[in-house]
Structure formats: structure tokens, C-alpha cells
């Protein structure tokens, strides 16, 4: 197969960036999208040119490193699939494919298709954990957790932190990412004691980072390679309102 790639090249956050066209020749339909890029890059390197920079690591859809807009879709047109698990058989021979980095203000471009997603780390640091020191844990089976609750928490916990939700959101909102972690921890008895404080602080941090607001377009849910549900968002809304309004009106300070 052969493809024409229109790739966003940008030397750094200060550079304005531009599209450059590359030809990807003689690509096997069995190769993955990133392997196709590898091939283009290797031919660039062989000519002494700098390859197209993109984030990637595990290449099995779990580390969350890969991140690019492929022809207008975060991670490409296949649902529930990261860019690294996308295969060329899903494209038409001779197709022109446009590649862009995530475009959200809190994710500044590092180079070409690579962005800085440390905003997500800072959101987790603001409260995305259970405060338990090593060694102080009670016996694991002491607190039974109903299977449906554990399964539901797992569904939210499968988030890989790739940023596709914020990247695909017309408002640049990170609500799906934040709410997945909030719900994962808030719904479990281990995370419940800190739930209101966690919600308030993670939302505050998310706002400070400069992400936009959810207007229920639902793009995030469709773009999410782990198919995390927008239900998390409404549950987080509820927890947030509880933590910042009701708790204060009725004189408690949340559970902080």
C-alpha cells in the first residue's frame, strides 16, 4: 500500500509549525500505523533528516504514550483503539492522511506530534490517590466489596491517561480523565473517606491547568481508546456539588 502523509512539524513550543508532506511507500497492510511511521522515519534518517517525533512506548495499547490526531480522529478512526494498535488495513490504498498533535492549551507541543501531558500528572498529584502509607494496610479481605462495585470501579480505572478525551473535545475539557479517576477511587470503600476533598481538589487543579468545560458533546467518550463512559462525568459533578455546596451550607466542611 502507499499513502501520502500530511504531518504537522514543529520544532518546539515557540515554533509556529507547519504541515509537511511525506510519501509512505510499499507499506504492508499488516503493519501498524506507528510501524508505517517508523518506516517513513527510517527513510528520513537514512537521508540524514530528522525523523517525525511522536510519543509511543508499549505499542500494545496500554501505556497511553501514543497520542495523535489521525485524519481528524484522536488515535484514528477505529473505536476503542490506540494509535499503536491501529493497522493499515483500515485505510484505503493511496489515501492522504493528516497527522496533528493533540491541540489543547494545557498540552503544549514538545516537538512535532509530541505534546507535554504533565498537566494530567499534576491533576493526579492533587488528589488522585488513597492516603495509605506502605505497611499500614489492613488485611485485604477485611472489607468485602460487592462485585458490581468493584467491576464498575475497574471500568473507570482502565484509563490510560493518553489525553484523547481532552484532545477530541471541542472545548478542550479533561473531564473524562479526571472523572474516571475520581469515580474509580470515590466508589470504593478505601477511597470513600477522602472522596469529597479529592473531588474538589482535582477539579480545582483541572481548572487551574486551563482545560475547558464539558458541554456534553460526547466526543471524549467516543475517542477514548478504553471506552470510558461519560457517566463518570455526571457522577463527578454530583460529588463536586456535594463537596462544595451542600457540605458548606450545612456546616460541614466536606470530609477534609
Amino acid at each position: 500500500m502507499r499513502f501520502t502523509l500530511k504531518v504537522w512539524r514543529q520544532n518546539g513550543p515557540g515554533d509556529s509549525g507547519r504541515f509537511v508532506e511525506y510519501a509512505a511507500e510499499d507499506i504492508s497492510s499488516d503493519s501498524s500505523f506507528l510501524e508505517m511511521l517508523d518506516r517513513v522515519n527510517e527513510s528520513l534518517e537514512a537521508e540524514g533528516e530528522e525523523p517525525i517525533v511522536f510519543d509511543h512506548d508499549c505499542r500494545e495499547g496500554i501505556c497511553g504514550a501514543c497520542s495523535m490526531m489521525i485524519d481528524g480522529y484522536a488515535h484514528g478512526p477505529e473505536r476503542g483503539t490506540t494509535a499503536c494498535q491501529l493497522h493499515m488495513r483500515h485505510f484505503k490504498d493511496g489515501q492522504t492522511i493528516t497527522l496533528e498533535p493533540w491541540r489543547v492549551r494545557p498540552f503544549p507541543v514538545v516537538r512535532d506530534l509530541m505534546v507535554d501531558r504533565s498537566a494530567f500528572d499534576r491533576i493526579i498529584e492533587s488528589g488522585g490517590y488513597v492516603s495509605v502509607n506502605t505497611g499500614s494496610a489492613p488485611e485485604a479481605n477485611l472489607i468485602p466489596i460487592p462485585k458490581d462495585i468493584a467491576d464498575d470501579a475497574f471500568d473507570s480505572a482502565t484509563c490510560i491517561g493518553c489525553g484523547a478525551c481532552a484532545a477530541s473535545c471541542p472545548n478542550g475539557s479533561a473531564m473524562l480523565f479526571v472523572s474516571a479517576k475520581v469515580h474509580h477511587l470515590n466508589s470504593l470503600p478505601q477511597g470513600e473517606p477522602e472522596s469529597l476533598k479529592r473531588t474538589a481538589e482535582m477539579v480545582m487543579r483541572m481548572d487551574e491547568e486551563g482545560f475547558g468545560n464539558c458541554t456534553n458533546h460526547g466526543e471524549c467518550e467516543v475517542a477514548c481508546p478504553k471506552e470510558i463512559s461519560m457517566r463518570n462525568i455526571s457522577r463527578m459533578n454530583r460529588d463536586f456539588v456535594r463537596s462544595s455546596l451542600l457540605a458548606r451550607v450545612f456546616g460541614s466542611n466536606g470530609n477534609s
Binding site: K6, D71, R103, R105, P170, G172, S173, E219
Partner: peptide
């Protein structure tokens, strides 16, 4: 305003899959 600031640069190509006439 916040949403616009969060997306200072638009994609050259973006295909909406879920956003619809109602939401947009």
C-alpha cells in the same frame, strides 16, 4: 471564553463522531 482559551488552535482536520446538531 474558557473553552476557547483551552483550544487556541483548531485542528486542520477534525471529524466529529458524537457531537451533533443539538450540542453544536
Amino acid at each position: 471564553g474558557e473553552n476557547r482559551r483551552a483550544r487556541p488552535q483548531n485542528y486542520a482536520v477534525q471529524r466529529y463522531q458524537s457531537a451533533n446538531a443539538f450540542s453544536r
